[in-house]
Nucleic acid binder design. Structure first.
Lengths: 315, 315
DNA sequence: CTCGATCACTAAATCGAATTAGTAGGAGAG
DNA sequence: CTCTCCTACTAATTCGATTTAGTGATCGAG
């Protein structure tokens, strides 16, 4: 920011027209009658001077900038799901000349004066979607959203013959809201399949033997349970470790399925069956919605929004 | 952005002074002779109207904004290390009235005109630090940076009596640069300990039996190798899985140590020994440097920048 | 010849903030 | 009385872009 900035005035001077004309040429503004020779002269001057528009001034005048902000706030930050979503969102926005910036501040309130500084074109508030709003209305719900993916997970166990299922949650604060949502959806999917009520089990407590004890208590109280669906792969792998500690055969005595396919799933003992979601596709869809573009019409669209069961040995 | 914005002119009108006076009051500008009663009147009007400064206009006038941008670009995006770093960076910046925004675009070049739109106070280009610059000069190097943490990993194996060590890399494109750096540092640390040359082994290839075959080939060629240091926990856990497939006793025949402590490390069979780095502390330090603040003087500083070995059963 | 449309531009205003360069009035010292 | 300093403000400008509202000249149709 220290060097003298090339402004539109410099380009105007160099090309012998006014700054207004420079703006019309560089923005290809409709309704202007500027001959090609003049346009070419302006473009050359801009290139030679290395002119870069001052986005602040543009945004101030236009009323918004070409930035899209993703507000993650209280949601889990370190998983493959979010990374994929960000990748898809960022790539699609970039294809339309916008830049994605991700905000991780632990504040649910997005009336942030500093954020207002950049007048983003749009703010995608994942925090609000999953904490304040009804996610089923925003993320595809039972069609192709989190609810639908949860149903795929449950249906895999039902399809394998399981009639009594537990749902493994874990204590990560950032996962509590999503975990509660996932449990609700799983409970509904179980009810839909005519199954008895889904039973929750909490894993991931810091105490060394907690997971083993929790699983033992679960099966003592519900010996009819033959399968566990994990809120995510980590929860499922904790159930695997507890099952191993209890000497339970997986999947014969207890089947286990994860969710969100981390690279660690295949390294588990036994390798973990899980549910893969193409979160990048969700990111791309979200980008198009934010920009007011029509949904992508290629085949890639709806197929990749559906969850896929990655079959391994645990369920 | 649809609602009528309250501007400084509105506050001026409501408090009966000029917009200049409003600016002087709200910014506590030095060298102005404004009585307290007038100041109070202006502040009350601003509060009642819900005035929020238009950051774009402020930034345009001042020449920069209160945004700090972290450019991740080609680096790994989904690990606990980055999440921790972002958390620390974001929190420290917030304490000083700045907002962190993270840019994930896969472009190494940060001369992005759209990014210029927000005139960030600073840009922390992790991509450049680890791809273009000499990281040891920027991240603490052999004192408390990645090189020092790598040395801690190696020294743990040396301390356990290992004299011939392999280094497990994995094929993730985003990890290639960091992996190469880590291998270089590990090789130097091994040389420093008077050990024979460190031997690389690549894991994580998609082919199902690849890791097992790679480990078998490594030990066939180097039967003297008794330990493996992983570029990260995932690589280490792949070595564990391959060792299991080959019927190798861990840590008796082969000791394995990871890096960056994922939650999955303790779920491995056997539980993985790894190296923990408090990346949030690095984030906080980076924030202070970006803002030109002196280093934090509390005890928390240097202690938490050091790597810690988390001892479990694999090494 | 007159009038309307078109071409090829332009000056001025706007966006909303901070800063610069004042000005009128009052008080105190010489 | 005059001069200097201080108080309590103000109008205008600046930042750099886009947009609004033109203007002079030319051409073609009636």
């Amino acid at each position: 920011m220290a060097a003298k900035r090339v402004t539109m005035k410099d380009v105007a001077r160099a090309s012998g027209v006014s700054a207004s004309t420079v703006s019309f040429v560089l923005n290809d503004a409709p309704g202007q009658t500027i001959p090609d020779a003049t346009r070419e002269r302006v473009r050359r001057a801009a290139a030679e001077l290395g002119y870069v528009p001052h986005g602040l001034a543009r945004a101030l005048r236009e009323g918004s900038s070409r930035i899209v902000v993703l507000n993650v706030a209280r949601l889990p930050r370190d998983g493959v799901a979010l990374a994929g979503f960000i990748g898809g969102l960022s790539d699609e926005l970039a294809e339309h000349g916008h830049t994605l910036l991700v905000r991780y501040r632990d504040a649910p309130d997005d009336a942030d004066p500093v954020l207002a500084a950049i007048s983003p074109r749009a703010v995608l508030d994942l925090d609000r979607v999953y904490f304040d709003d009804e996610p089923e209305l925003a993320d595809g719900g039972w069609v192709d959203g989190l609810a639908a993916h949860t149903a795929v997970q449950l249906r895999h166990l039902v399809g394998a013959g399981h009639r009594s299922i537990a749902f493994a949650l874990r204590g990560d604060e950032r996962l509590s809201r999503l975990g509660a949502l996932r449990f609700d959806y799983a409970r509904d999917a179980a009810a839909e399949a005519g199954l008895p009520a889904l039973v929750p089990v909490a894993v991931g407590h810091p105490a060394a033997a907690h997971d083993r004890d929790a699983l033992a208590a679960l099966l003592a109280e519900h010996p009819e349970i033959t399968a566990v669906a994990g809120v995510d792969d980590e929860a499922a792998m904790r159930v695997l470790a507890a099952a191993r500690a209890l000497g339970l055969a997986v999947p014969d005595r207890l089947a286990v399925i994860g969710f969100d396919e981390t690279p660690f799933a295949e390294l588990a003992e036994p390798p973990l069956t899980t549910v893969r979601i193409d979160t990048a596709a969700f990111g791309r869809r979200a980008a198009r919605e934010l920009l007011g573009l029509p949904a992508a019409t290629d085949d890639r669209g709806s197929a990749s929004l559906a969850a896929t069961v990655i079959r391994r040995e645990s369920a």
